[in-house]
Amino acid sequence: MNKLYLGVDVGSVSTNLVLMDDFGAVNQGLYLRTQGRPLEAIQKGLAQLKLGGGEISGVGTTGSARNLAAAVLGADVVKNEITAHAVAASAQVPGVQTILEIGGQDSKIIILRDGVVSDFAMNTVCAAGTGSFLDQQAGRLNIAIEDFGEIALTAQMPVRIAGRCSVFAESDMIHKQQLGHHMPDILAGLCEAMVRNYLNNVGKGKDIQGPVVFQGGVAANKGIRKAFEQALGLPIIVPDNFSVMGALGSAILAREAVSSGKTSKFRGVNVTSGNFAATSFECSGCANLCEIVQIGLEEKVLARWGDRCGKWGVEQSTSAASGASA
């Protein structure tokens, strides 16, 4: 039976799953909306996996809900998204030195040298430079987000948009529309503003050298890609699996984690049929008043976290935690 590795990246906006074979090839990549319900998104994703006679022999999770995903799935490795993205990009584009990653609600830059992360920065304070904002503007202008980039590429003369803040950017765009600028010029201007904002905030002071890889959901946007190329004066590589790189990185890490012949902790694909519930409560044991999150399957408690003292620990949750520290 074919060995397959499952990587799951549960982020604020999207939940991505990747099935990778033993040779590192991506058999299947799924990009789903999290819509604020990570548990359902994971279950929906699992139901769509096509194993094709293969067997899942390792599972890795990443993203802001990595611990939750790990508890539900029974993951072999839990890693932060910076490491996961770097691992995936190095595998897809050997020798990569800079990774630009723009997702739904966060953006990051990762600098690698000799295949090792040497610097990173991440911005979650401001969403002006992320996918959600583009989504919102496309919606307001009545353009499908998929067409955004193509339209921007037809611009004759991009207009300058104030991109420092999404609220100001929006009013500036409306202003430019009222002045009679063409839609493609405005969209291209927005792309340039976003790139400027990214490079001035997340990318500030970073030593950006080629090869440069651009990944994350926003990498689909050709307008942004072009704006990056112009701003950096370097060719931009968008890998095939650009939208699911975090999940791919997790799958690669999962393969590493079980490489020494360990058996996967994966609970099986039928995990989808289970009735998972996440509940939270405030522990009143001491003045810390920790918020405890509890993940249950039917009557059984799979994992708890949030406590400082460890008194709410369950057997399974320690396995997830030790994965994080491995």
Partner: peptide, 18 residues
Amino acid sequence: VLTRLEAFVDLINRRQSQ
């Protein structure tokens, strides 16, 4: 904070080994 701490620890661990 945890994400950044983990990534920072990964970074220094890999630096140490390479």
